[in-house]
Amino acid sequence: MSTAQELDRRGRRRQQTIDEILDVAVELMEAEGVAALSLSAVARKVGMQPPSLYQYFPSKMAIYDALFQRGAEQVLEAQRKARAEATTTDQRELGLVGITAFSRWCIQNQVLSQLLFWRTVPGFEPSPEAFAPAVDGLQDLRSYLEQSVAAGLLHPDAASDDGLALYTAMTAGVLSQQMANEPDATYENGRFTRLMPVILDMFYERYKPTRGKK
């Protein structure tokens, strides 16, 4: 076996171990709580000594950072895939497609959702690299709102920083209520997630094209 092949094999093996560590971390966070993650518990469940774990993650915050990036990449991919496969060109319908994909992912990945959208770990701040997919997601949202403005469906203020803040606060608020009160419900059956179409209607009403005109 050549040196390059050996290095490639080692790289794959290392990545497999990293993925296993992260999967185990999520399992433990589901059982014990996001902020209660223990490196020793992760090492035991993976089948290695804690010092060996440090070869992959030097600290608990490093594991949180890797999980933040994993979650941010997944939720971004879920929304982009849903919009790409949508059979409509109607802007409001595309908005609901995006919200639905986002909400379903959050409900199916509640541990990562807590890490991404609610500050459940004191002192944790994602690195710029881990946060980059989240920035891309916000830019996708701004682009969607700008397209709705260009189509004459929204006032230009909808694509402003305040517009994005209101949009994300409304959707995240509904999801927070859903996961706090009915964590086992599906998106379609959730008492709060069923309101997502209403949330979108409220946003469009708030930023209707005639806003501010008398």
Rank of each mutant, 00 (worst) to 15 (best):
P156C: 14
R10M: 14
R194C: 05
G173E: 08
S176M: 14
S143F: 04
V26I: 15
S52I: 02
E182D: 15
S176P: 01
S176Y: 15
Y54E: 04
E205K: 07
E20H: 09
I21L: 06
A31R: 14
E20G: 01
A25V: 00
Q147N: 07
A165G: 08
K214F: 02
G11A: 14
P197D: 06
E32R: 14
G11N: 14
A185N: 03
L145E: 06
S160G: 11
G33L: 10
M29H: 05
A35D: 08
S40H: 09
E77A: 15
L138S: 06
T87A: 14
V149F: 05
P133Y: 07
K60H: 07
T210N: 05
A66C: 03
E85S: 13
M48D: 00
T186Y: 07
D136S: 13
P156L: 13
E205S: 08
Q49R: 12
Q91L: 13
A86N: 09
A25T: 01
V174A: 11
E146V: 05
Y167R: 14
Y207E: 01
A150T: 08
L22A: 03
Q79F: 00
Q5T: 07
D136E: 15
S2H: 13
M61I: 00
V97M: 05
Q16L: 11
G71P: 08
R92L: 08
R119V: 10
